Simulated assay, not measured.
Amino acid sequence: MSEGPPKTAEELFRFLDTLGIEHKTTRHQPVFTVAESVALRDEIPGGHTKNLFLKDKKDNYFLLTVEENATVDLKTVHQLIGAASKVSFGKPDKLMEYLGVIPGAVTAFGAINDKEGKVKFVLDEALMAFETINCHPLSNDQTTSIASKDMLRFMQATGHEPLVLKVTA
């Protein structure tokens, strides 16, 4: 097993186990969009996520994790998250370099691969109001359910202090 990123889903699950964090994973066909994943709602309760990998003009990177149906105003969200300028979407090569995932598999669990703290993680307040939230475990052919309070513990254990902010309309 290689030492470097990106971590696998199995390595993520072992990390959660070492933290004593309960998690449940459901395997499914690969899904690349929120629309494709809607069919899973009946079998996976809780808040489902949409993730926006963003950057500002100074190459500061942000991952916004919000409830799947939420709307984020990309023209003004930079003022809420502390970006140096308006934000745009980060490129797939930076997504892989920093979070170890491909487009369509973007997840807050990518924090496990961000060893150098290049990404600021923002969890939307409305999402965190759910008792359980659901994220891809570094691949888009499964969904992992975790308590929202445990997502905060996971983030802290990876060396990140996520912002919990109201970033959605």
Results as ranks from 00 to 15, higher is better:
residue 2 S to W: 04
residue 3 E to A: 13
residue 6 P to N: 08
residue 8 T to M: 03
residue 10 E to N: 09
residue 10 E to M: 10
residue 11 E to M: 07
residue 11 E to R: 11
residue 12 L to K: 07
residue 13 F to N: 01
residue 16 L to I: 04
residue 18 T to K: 15
residue 19 L to S: 09
residue 19 L to K: 12
residue 19 L to V: 10
residue 19 L to R: 08
residue 19 L to P: 06
residue 20 G to P: 07
residue 21 I to F: 05
residue 22 E to H: 12
residue 28 H to S: 07
residue 35 A to H: 10
residue 35 A to E: 15
residue 36 E to T: 06
residue 36 E to D: 15
residue 36 E to S: 06
residue 37 S to V: 01
residue 37 S to P: 01
residue 37 S to T: 05
residue 38 V to P: 00
residue 39 A to K: 14
residue 42 D to Y: 05
residue 43 E to D: 13
residue 45 P to I: 04
residue 46 G to C: 06
residue 48 H to N: 10
residue 48 H to V: 07
residue 49 T to A: 08
residue 49 T to N: 06
residue 53 F to I: 09
residue 53 F to N: 03
residue 54 L to E: 07
residue 55 K to Q: 15
residue 56 D to R: 08
residue 56 D to L: 07
residue 56 D to A: 08
residue 56 D to K: 08
residue 58 K to N: 14
residue 58 K to L: 13
residue 60 N to E: 13
residue 60 N to C: 04
residue 60 N to Q: 13
residue 60 N to R: 15
residue 61 Y to K: 02
residue 62 F to S: 08
residue 62 F to E: 04
residue 64 L to R: 00
residue 65 T to H: 03
residue 67 E to I: 06
residue 68 E to H: 12
residue 68 E to Y: 12
residue 72 V to I: 11
residue 73 D to V: 04
residue 73 D to M: 04
residue 76 T to C: 00
residue 77 V to G: 07
residue 78 H to C: 02
residue 79 Q to S: 06
residue 80 L to T: 14
residue 83 A to M: 09
residue 84 A to S: 14
residue 84 A to L: 05
residue 85 S to W: 05
residue 87 V to N: 11
residue 87 V to P: 12
residue 90 G to T: 03
residue 92 P to L: 08
residue 93 D to E: 15
residue 95 L to S: 00
residue 97 E to L: 11
residue 97 E to H: 11
residue 100 G to W: 02
residue 100 G to Q: 05
residue 101 V to G: 01
residue 102 I to Y: 09
residue 102 I to R: 13
residue 103 P to A: 09
residue 104 G to W: 02
residue 104 G to P: 01
residue 107 T to A: 07
residue 109 F to H: 09
residue 112 I to H: 01
residue 116 E to C: 00
residue 117 G to D: 14
residue 119 V to C: 04
residue 119 V to Q: 03
residue 120 K to G: 02
residue 122 V to H: 11
residue 123 L to K: 06
residue 125 E to W: 02
residue 127 L to V: 03
residue 128 M to G: 03
residue 129 A to C: 01
residue 130 F to L: 02
residue 132 T to G: 02
residue 133 I to M: 10
residue 134 N to I: 00
residue 135 C to S: 14
residue 135 C to N: 15
residue 135 C to Q: 11
residue 138 L to P: 05
residue 141 D to S: 10
residue 141 D to W: 05
residue 142 Q to D: 00
residue 143 T to I: 12
residue 146 I to Q: 07
residue 147 A to P: 01
residue 147 A to L: 15
residue 149 K to Q: 12
residue 151 M to E: 04
residue 152 L to C: 01
residue 153 R to E: 13
residue 154 F to D: 09
residue 154 F to K: 12
residue 157 A to F: 11
residue 158 T to A: 14
residue 161 E to D: 14
residue 161 E to I: 08
residue 162 P to N: 07
residue 163 L to D: 11
residue 163 L to F: 11
residue 164 V to Q: 10
residue 166 K to T: 12
